[in-house]
Amino acid sequence: MSTTEIISQARALLETSQPDQALELLTKHLNSHVDSTQFLSVYGETLLETNQLEQAYQVLSKACEMDPEANEGVEKFLYLGQIIGGADGLNYVNIALNKLSAYLEDLNNGNVDQGLLTMYGGSGNDVSKLRHWIIEKLNSGIFGEIEVWMTDLCMEPEAESKCEELIQHSLKLDDANPEAYSLLASIRISQQRNPDAVVALEKSWELFQAKKTKLEQAANDAAEANDNNAFEIGMEYVELIQPLLTLSRFATELELYDRAAVIASSVQDINDSILDSYYIEALAGLFKAKQLLFNGSEEEDYRDIDINTLKQSDNPEITAILNEAKSTLTQGYKIINSDAVEDCDLGLVEQVNELLKELGGPVMSELMPRRGDDEEEGWEDEIQSDEE
């Protein structure tokens, strides 16, 4: 099997969320491909996907040493920069960004790299697809650099100006990228420019909605036409989950509780087994209820009000919100008590259980199987036997 075939098979496994199988395939061929930077790059990526950070660092470091100018791929520099972080990490990311910028400049001047076109232009060697790939990778690196400046290097005097420079460059590359506006909202929050953060967040949500709707329509069309692109569309749809969760957290931080709940709920359209979405939706509702009870008083932070105090309120809107939060968390409770809990953060599981306990426990009627489900016949007898 050639190096190209091995890499192609490994990438297919990674794209279908089978990193363990990809690692098994690559490990089997490692000894005969230790001099291939492209092989080492995908091998390092696979090690990252299987949470073997130290091994990934060593493999990717070697691959970068073998190809210091990123002539045989930029991904290894992006991944290594992500692992290292700090100023040293930025140096690696910048190598990738410089190479990608050169590719884009050549493309804009009509000079198409045939190797890149074959690899990233799709089956029809589409230049627009290649351009999309280059800009997507550029933004990936830019977002990574912004994260470093906002975390590892946040105390550096130039941190704020660097973030501003990078996010504006990203928006210039693609002014319809919802993740760029989400990150812009995060930057504005850190600058305590909340009104501007709200504007950026609303723009991000508008673009995410449009993208989500477009992908849903494309998926339906592909399914009807038996199109081979259905899988790629599905993967792009699933990739919306984490950015939407992030955006819903920003909305919560900005006290846009209705918006936060709607964004979190939209994740459930994509995958109804994501515990975070139910938690954020319920939390946003509870903050809204606390805000209503607080009624503008400046004596204390309304977010410090406990749930027992909320439960004592005779405000029908607050009561309705508490019932809705309880119902939402009950859906999360069902996830916790299913096989899907294996993919859940244990700390989040504890938080959901704690909130539910404070609200009086899950809604029992929503935990009962639907009558008429053949596989659930006899559930009444099971409950009776548990009580005996």
Results as ranks from 00 to 15, higher is better:
residue 268 Q to K: 13
residue 268 Q to R: 15
residue 272 D to T: 06
residue 272 D to W: 06
residue 272 D to C: 03
residue 273 S to G: 06
residue 274 I to W: 10
residue 276 D to F: 11
residue 276 D to M: 13
residue 276 D to A: 13
residue 276 D to E: 15
residue 277 S to Q: 07
residue 277 S to F: 10
residue 277 S to T: 09
residue 278 Y to K: 05
residue 278 Y to L: 06
residue 279 Y to D: 04
residue 279 Y to T: 01
residue 281 E to A: 15
residue 283 L to Q: 07
residue 285 G to A: 07
residue 286 L to H: 00
residue 288 K to F: 03
residue 289 A to W: 02
residue 291 Q to A: 05
residue 291 Q to D: 08
residue 291 Q to S: 09
residue 292 L to N: 02
residue 292 L to V: 04
residue 292 L to Q: 08
residue 293 L to V: 03
residue 295 N to M: 09
residue 295 N to W: 09
residue 296 G to Q: 06
residue 297 S to G: 09
residue 297 S to D: 11
residue 298 E to C: 12
residue 300 E to D: 12
residue 300 E to R: 06
residue 300 E to L: 07
residue 301 D to Y: 00
residue 302 Y to D: 00
residue 302 Y to G: 05
residue 304 D to S: 12
residue 304 D to R: 02
residue 304 D to H: 02
residue 305 I to C: 01
residue 310 L to S: 01
residue 310 L to Q: 01
residue 311 K to C: 04
residue 311 K to Y: 04
residue 311 K to G: 07
residue 312 Q to W: 06
residue 313 S to V: 07
residue 313 S to L: 05
residue 313 S to Y: 05
residue 313 S to M: 06
residue 315 N to L: 02
residue 315 N to K: 02
residue 315 N to F: 04
residue 318 I to Q: 01
residue 321 I to Q: 03
residue 321 I to P: 01
residue 322 L to P: 05
residue 325 A to V: 04
residue 325 A to H: 04
residue 326 K to Y: 08
residue 327 S to D: 13
residue 328 T to Q: 06
residue 329 L to K: 03
residue 330 T to S: 07
residue 330 T to C: 07
residue 331 Q to V: 08
residue 333 Y to P: 03
residue 335 I to W: 12
residue 335 I to H: 11
residue 337 N to P: 09
residue 339 D to T: 13
residue 339 D to M: 14
residue 342 E to M: 14
residue 344 C to A: 15
residue 344 C to R: 08
residue 345 D to F: 08
residue 346 L to F: 14
residue 346 L to A: 15
residue 350 E to R: 13
residue 350 E to W: 12
residue 351 Q to L: 13
residue 351 Q to W: 10
